[in-house]
C-alpha cells in the first residue's frame, strides 16, 4: 500500500491517473486551440461595448456553419493565431454602405445603431461591397475615421465570433 500522500497525488492506480490527466490536458488544449480562444482586448476602438484590457472568449466555430450577421462582433485574422482584430459587422456582402455625418446608411437607408454611445461625425462616400466582403468597424465613433481601423474584410479572414 503506497503512502497516503502518494495516494492523494496519484490515486490507487498511477497509470490510470496519468492516462486520465493526459486525456484531460489534450481535451483542454483542443478546446482552447480550436473552439474557444481566450483573448485580452488591447485598445479603445470597441468602447463602450468592450473595455480596454478586458478578457473574452472567441468562438472559432461560430461561422463554420453560418455566415456573420449585421451587428455581430467578429474576430478577424491578422497573421497567425496569437493576435486578432475584434470588430462589429456593419454591412454584408453585396450591400452598399455609407456614413453621413456619423449616420450609418445601408443601401441609401439610415440604420439605427443602439450599441453606440456617440455617433461621431464619420463621413464615407457610398461603397459597394464585393460578394465575399463585409464592412467592419469599432463602436468608438468619437475617434476620427482616420485614426480608426474600419473598412472591408474578406470572409476568409473572419475566423470567429465573440462567445462572451
Amino acid at each position: 500500500m503506497p503512502p497516503r500522500w502518494q495516494q492523494l497525488l496519484w490515486g490507487r492506480r498511477p497509470l490510470r491517473t496519468a492516462v486520465r490527466a493526459g486525456l484531460l490536458a489534450a481535451g483542454c488544449w483542443l478546446l482552447l486551440r480550436c473552439v474557444c480562444l481566450p483573448m485580452r482586448v488591447e485598445g479603445i476602438s470597441m468602447q463602450p461595448t468592450i473595455r480596454d484590457g478586458s478578457w473574452h472568449l472567441a468562438n472559432l466555430l461560430q461561422y463554420r456553419w453560418r455566415e456573420p450577421r449585421r451587428g455581430e462582433l467578429v474576430v478577424i485574422r491578422l497573421a497567425g493565431r496569437r493576435v486578432f482584430y475584434l470588430k462589429r459587422v456593419l454591412a454584408l456582402p453585396g450591400e452598399r454602405i455609407a456614413f453621413v455625418q456619423g449616420q450609418l446608411r445601408i443601401a441609401g437607408r439610415d440604420l439605427d445603431e443602439p450599441y453606440l454611445r456617440e455617433h461621431g461625425d464619420w463621413t464615407l462616400p457610398e461603397v459597394a461591397l464585393a460578394p465575399d466582403e463585409y464592412f467592419v468597424a469599432g463602436d468608438h465613433r468619437a475617434l476620427p475615421l482616420a485614426q480608426h481601423k474600419a473598412g472591408t474584410v474578406a470572409r476568409a479572414d473572419i475566423v470567429g465570433g465573440l462567445l462572451r
Binding site: 478577424i76 482584430y85 470588430k87 464615407l124 461603397v127 475615421l145 473598412g151 472591408t152 479572414d157
Partner: peptide, 10 residues
C-alpha cells in the same frame, strides 16, 4: 492588412 480602407473613403 485584413481590414482594408475603401478607396472612396475620406
Amino acid at each position: 492588412d485584413s481590414i482594408r480602407r475603401p478607396a472612396a473613403s475620406e
